[in-house]
Structures are given as C-alpha cells and as structure tokens.
Design a protein around this nucleic acid. Structure first.
Lengths: 242, 242
DNA sequence: TGTACATCAGTGAACGCGCGTTCACTGATGTAC
DNA sequence: TGTACATCAGTGAACGCGCGTTCACTGATGTAC
C-alpha cells in the first residue's frame, strides 16, 4: 500500500465522516443543512469542508445519491434473498417491505429524496440511475412472472388485461411503452401500468405514514402496510405464496 | 358600520395580505419562510409583523390551516357540482381531479401540507378538522353509493368483498372501523379500506408528479392521472358513468 | 358635542446569533531525482 | 539514501449577509363620559 493511497484512504474516511455527520443534522434540521454546524461537530474550522465538497449543493447531491443507492441496495438485497425466484408474491412483499423498513430507519434521508424538493436545489442527471434502482426491482418481479407465465397476460388478477387496456389512451400507452423498452422488453404495457400503480401506492403509503397523515387513524402500521401491498399484489395478479 | 369594525376590517385585510405575501415566499424558498422578507415586501419594518402573528410558527400554522381549507373547499365544491348525486364515478373523478388541480395551481402550499414536515414545527390539533375535509369527501362518495345500493356490498368491483375481508386483520379492521364510526356509520369496513387505498393512491400520484418523480417517464400527465383514478374507481366498484 | 383617556399599529434600534464562501497562511505528507 | 520541491489538509480571519424576537417609543384611531 503506497503512501499515496494512505492519503487517499484518509480522504475517503473524512468524506464519509462528513456525510455521516451531515446525515445526523438532516434528521434534526431537515434539508436546511448547515455546513458550519457539520464542521463544528467534527471539530474542524468551517472552511475546511471545502477541501472535500466544493459547495453546499455538492454535499447535498452526494447525500441524495447515497440515499437513493442505500435504498436501492436494500430493496435489491431483499428481493435477492428470496431463493425461489418463482415466488413472486413473496418477492413483491420482501421488496416493498424493504422500502418501508429503510424509510422508517432513515426518515430524514427518506424525506430528502421523497419529500418536497429542497428549494433552490436541482438534482443533477447523475441521480437518475440511482433513483431508478428501486422501481426497477418492482418491474423485474412482474417481468419475471410474465416471462415464466405465472402472471397471466390474458387476465391478470381481478382486473382483466382487457379492462386495463381499455383504460390506456395512446399517449399514456406510449409513455409506458417507452419506459418498458429500456428495462423489460416484451412486458405487456398493461403490466407496466400495474407496476407503476403499485410503485405509487408503495411510496404514497410510506410518505403518509412518515409524514404523519395516519396519526389518530391507523395505528396498526405494520399490518396496514402489509395489507396494502397484498392488495396491490392481488391487483397485479401475483399468485398466492405456495 | 361602527368605527371599531373599521379597525377590525383593516386588521383582517393586513392579516390576509401578510399571508398572501408569505405564500409567495413559500413558492420560492420552501418552508424556510423568512418573516423579515415578508415584511420587507410589504414595506413594513420587521417587528411590525408581531402585531398580527405572535411568532413564525403562528404564521406557519395559519398558512397550513388556510391550505387545508382551500384544498378541502375546492374538493367539496367539485363534488357538489355534480348535480346527479348518484353518478358516483363522475363525483369521484371530479373530487380527485380537484385535488390535483389545486395542487398544480398551488404547489408550494401543497408541499407545505403534503411534503416533508417542517423541521422543528409540530402542527397543532386545530389543523386536524381542516385536514380531514378532503378524505371525508372521498369516503362520502362511497358511502352514498353504498346507501343507494349502487356500490355492491357482496362483491365490489373486480375485488370481491370476501377477498378484501380476507386481507384485513383484526387490528387494521379495528382502526378502519373506528374511523368509519365517526364519519359514515354503516359503511362496510371493506369499503373504508378501498377509500383509504384510493386516498393514498391519489396523493401518492400527485406528490410524485409535483416532486419530479415522473420526469423523463410520464409525459401525458393529465391523462395518466385520470387513468389512475379510473383504475381506483374500478377497484372500488363504482359503476360506469351512465 | 367635546374632551380625556385607552387602545392599537407601526417604528427603529438593538440583541445575539447563524450562514456560505474566499483567501493567504502554515505545516505535514508524498514524489522525483 | 537524502534532499528539493510539490501537493494537500486544515487554520483563522474576514466579507457581506440574513435571521427571529424584544423593547421603549410615537402618533393615530376609537371609546367613555
């Protein structure tokens, strides 16, 4: 290990520590992240942070990217942990449960990426791939099922494919088909619609829970969420767990 | 009109103007609302605002309350505008469309009430009733349908009531039943579940759209939203518009 | 109706604080010969 | 192997700015007699 890489390693550790401290501040101050507060916590002088991030926006971008990747990684791992890949419902519940689990464990980071956008901050293009990891897992579960013939193409779940097809106008169909072509060629557009619907329901439910909209109303949070995801699995026509 | 009420009226106008200016600032700065900026815009000295609001949190509470009431009022009006009360699907589409319409017209206020909570700010109890107005409209549409026998209780839409009932555990059933008792006695718990599911989908879809999650993916936003709401109407078993 | 007093809106200065970013600097670590 | 130089992390002062809130005040408006 050359001397150069020692310096590089220390630098990587410092960068990681800055981000870790910043994440803690996110939890108490929301997206009003203060660089001075972060450096003070680390026992550094405020200007020192500019050796690691060239501006506050730069640090925010790094935190957003990390959050998307941490979430995406957790979801991918939860799906991958289901050994029998043909157990689609189990995979769906594992993946969606992982999103909620991560969100509850990291509420400030969840709010950073799925809450209201930070005013005056525009997420750069580089976050797109990281952002897409989670929905990709959801689509892939349906695509695997369709490829294996487990998710019927003639009538899926309680909604028939015909009923869904009747809903789709040309413009929306084109949007969904374009999206589909990138990630799961051959998947019927109706199934893409179901995947997107489930994706919206998933994050809608988690945001409502985390942002306090279920207060004084739904107390059995774990069970409620599981039932919402079972309902979505029913809608998608995922066969019951064997 | 006595002299006293002139003073009162001027006071009400000033209060309204402060809130209007504050709303404009919300749009550019998010929830980092600056009292000094608001008063400067009004040509007042910064301390003058304390004649109208006793603190920044007080002003925020007023803005949140106004936003909930503006949204709730718009949704109630949209529902009420459907003359034939038995046209449930039309009412559902009008009410949910009004939510989205209001949100697109007032994105900063939408983010204030449905985005990430303002750090260090806790919404007081008094906002609950205003908050509830919108979901109440949705539940009432289903309750009206159920009372009129239009929304079947034996099998609703593509999901049978039995299938939904099988999903509900005792704890969640108790949560939903307790909520139901306050607002629509007699409504089957399964229909409450459907209403809550639609409510989540509604706000999930709007938040995703407003917070940029549909960028580079769904371009036909109006149509996509309508189709999501039609899908939810199908799920709820709302009969097709005559 | 006219006067004395109370209420109220708005002022201007101040308190104590925090912010992101720049800049010339010191001193340690790494590299090339 | 030893030395000269370059790179880099971290310092401390400063710039120019903004923040919420308090306080004693002025002067206008409203109220009671």
């Amino acid at each position: 290990m050359s001397a150069g890489s020692i310096r590089a390693r220390v630098r990587a550790e410092m960068t990681a520590e800055i981000k870790a401290v910043a994440r803690r501040h996110l939890a108490s101050d929301g997206a009003n992240l203060s660089l001075r507060a972060v450096t003070k916590d680390m026992g550094m002088v405020s200007s020192a942070i500019y050796r690691y991030f060239k501006s506050r926006d730069d640090l925010l971008t790094a935190l957003i990217l990390d959050a998307y990747n941490a979430l995406g990684g957790a979801v991918e791992a939860a799906d991958a942990a289901i050994a029998d890949r043909s157990q689609l419902r189990e995979r769906w519940l594992a993946a969606t449960g992982a999103v909620r689990h991560w969100a509850l464990a990291n509420p400030a980071e969840y709010a950073l990426i799925y809450g209201s956008p930070v005013p005056g901050y525009a997420a750069p293009q580089e976050t797109i791939a990281a952002f897409a990891r989670t929905p990709l897992v959801l689509v892939r579960i349906l695509a695997d099922g369709h490829a294996a013939g487990a998710v019927p193409s003639a009538g899926l779940g309680p909604m028939t494919q015909e009923a869904l097809a009747a809903l789709l106008t040309d413009a929306v169909r084109a949007d969904l088909t374009r999206t589909r072509d990138d990630i799961a060629p051959g998947l019927p557009t109706e199934l893409v619609l179901v995947a997107v619907t489930g994706w919206i329901q998933l994050f809608g439910a988690i945001s409502f829970e985390l942002f306090g909209k279920f207060n004084n109303m739904i107390n059995a949070r774990d069970e409620f969420f599981d039932q919402q995801m079972e309902l979505m699995a029913d809608l998608a026509g995922l066969p019951p767990t064997r």
